[in-house]
């Protein structure tokens, strides 16, 4: 399935959230990066059929998001950033509920619920009230519900926020596994490491406009020739910080090692280095 987003525009009153967004999403994991307020959540909600675009279209396999919203919902798994569940129902009850709404056949429902519970490591907590869950467990339940119904499209907003490192690794592996099954997984995140770890392609949204990158490496290349490594006395670092945009720094005793984002060579004491994805992203959004 290939999702074609064509010149999508969405405004709320007079504020334009998305402007002519055109993207092609192929099977695999698609990362969506962008600063706060750039329009990521709006695009995610449009993909989740919560919002309808004011203009433009989204289509996949002949399905139009505006006209066939109901069909889209049956093939969609969505996990919003702000996810919670009623406190006085069990995890299993929630999953059975959502599975039924998604149209999972009754004879497969139990199997699917057990499978997604297992996938997110919640099997032993399946029959406990959600009110007793920790934040991480609730997040995992959110992921589990998004996986129900064997969705062709999974839209996930900040999935790893609140997960401990072990759970994060487990989730990345899960995503990878899902992507192998000809699905489109759209991952909106602030954590560039997640994108770097799992995404095949990505887009960066800035001020409502999206730019597609074929791979994380392509985004990293945006900062080619702009990242400089500086190593020096810790006392000189403060001056450096005032003059240049530091993208990362590490303290090593009395010396500091910093990476500078700059179009020109800041000084003789620096050396050019290959940019990371995060630096590419910063270079892009910093324009």
């Amino acid at each position: 399935m290939i999702i074609q987003i064509e010149r999508v525009k969405k405004a709320f009153k007079k504020k334009t959230a998305l402007e002519d967004v055109t993207l092609t999403l192929k099977p695999g994991i698609f990362g969506l990066l962008g600063p706060n307020g750039a329009g990521k959540t709006t695009l995610m909600r449009i993909l989740a059929t919560i919002f309808r675009p004011d203009r433009g279209s989204i289509t996949a396999d002949g399905i139009d998001w505006t006209r066939d919203a109901h069909r889209v919902r049956t093939m969609l798994g969505y996990l919003p950033q702000d996810f919670g569940v009623f406190r006085n129902v069990t995890a299993r009850e929630v999953l059975v509920y959502i599975g039924t709404l998604k149209g999972v056949a009754r004879d497969q429902l139990k199997h699917q619920v057990n499978a997604v519970l297992d996938a997110v490591n919640l099997t032993t907590h399946a029959d406990k009230k959600v009110g007793t869950f920790s934040g991480g467990m609730r997040r995992r339940l959110g992921i589990a519900q998004a996986l129900l119904g064997d969705p062709k499209l999974i839209v996930i907003d900040e999935p790893t926020a609140g997960l401990d490192p072990e759970e994060r690794v487990r989730f990345r592996l899960l995503l990878r596994r899902l992507a192998q099954e000809e699905r489109v997984v759209i991952l909106s995140t602030h954590i560039v490491g997640d994108v770097e770890a799992v995404c095949d392609q990505l887009a960066v949204i800035k001020k409502g406009k999206a730019h597609l990158f074929a791979s994380p490496e392509e985004l990293a290349k945006v900062a080619d020739g702009q990242i400089w490594r500086w190593v020096g006395d810790i006392r000189d670092y403060a001056l450096l910080e005032e003059k240049y945009r530091i993208v990362s720094s590490v303290s090593r005793g009395s010396t500091m090692e910093a990476r500078i984002l700059s179009d020109t060579q800041p000084s003789e004491a620096v050396e050019p280095v290959a940019p990371t994805l995060e630096e590419g992203y910063l270079a892009w959004v910093g324009e």
């Binding site: 702000d82 996810f83 406190r87």
Partner: peptide, 17 residues
Amino acid sequence: RREHVAHFDEIMSSLPG
């Protein structure tokens, strides 16, 4: 307020029904 308080409203809005 149930769905909103539980932060479940967005999920429900994206589901059939």
